[in-house]
Amino acid sequence: MATTACFIIVSRNDIPIYEAEVGSTVKREDAAHLHQFILHAAQDIVQDLAWTTSAMFLKAIDRFNDLVVSVYVTAGHTRFMLLHDSRNDDGIKSFFQEVHELYIKTLLNPLYLPGSRITSSHFDTKVRALARKYL
């Protein structure tokens, strides 16, 4: 499992709708904003790259020092962004695919408004379990 990993889902209008620190290290207070900064900045690259490929998984697209940003873009241009420090492309890809499935299930919920914050605790526990499994 990666020591540092921050998973975030960004809606198509650039609003983070789900955030989770899934690394094994204890969450540091000052790291939260750094992670957001890195992921936020990485979107500049995502917006270019997303149109160059038909694959949803964009691999590692950006890095900051030893932190790497991997991105998965759904068909609706919701972006799953993972900031991590370990190189495990296959694991990350599986992670993204499973989270995508979860996300679709969330979307199917008639009470969930697409683009709004995902507050489901079930979703949260599932994502964390997947992170433990794959990252």
Binding site: I38, A41, Q43, D44
Partner: peptide
């Protein structure tokens, strides 16, 4: 540099300013 890249990468610009 990010600001003047084409297209402008504003988020990177902001991040590096910070």
């Amino acid at each position: 540099c990010y600001l003047y890249s084409k297209p402008p990468m504003l988020r990177k610009y902001g991040f590096h300013l910070v």
